[in-house]
């Protein structure tokens, strides 16, 4: 079994209204110097080891987990150690 962690954010160059609002809120609270805030999604799931190929995970991201029109994704995998 493999744990897959997927991060989805709006593509670079696509304006992120939510990120902008959060950035301004941080500034309003006195946390200055913040720029390029992007708000995204984090997903994690377990995947049978024999299914956990790069190709398979990328297909999952392209077809459903991210919308390639406006979003970028990246992912990490780690072995699930069964106790």
């Amino acid at each position: 079994m493999v744990k897959v962690k997927v991060y989805v954010t709006l593509k670079e160059g696509v304006l992120d209204p939510q990120g902008k609002a959060v950035e301004q809120a941080l500034d309003a609270k006195g946390f200055n110097g913040v720029s390029d805030m992007r708000v995204g999604k984090y997903m994690e799931f377990n995947l049978d080891a024999n299914m956990a190929t790069e190709n398979q995970i990328e297909e999952m991201c392209e077809q459903l987990l991210a919308n390639p029109v406006i979003e970028d994704y990246r992912y990490e995998t780690e072995e699930v150690v069964s106790s």
């Binding site: 709006l10 696509v14 992120d16 209204p17 939510q18 609002a21 919308n67 029109v69 406006i70």
Partner: peptide, 17 residues
């Protein structure tokens, strides 16, 4: 229709959230 690829493009949150 956008998500199914029948039309091009995508929707984001409204600018004013």
């Amino acid at each position: 229709l956008l998500e199914s690829g029948l039309l091009p493009g995508a929707m984001k949150r409204n600018e004013n959230l």
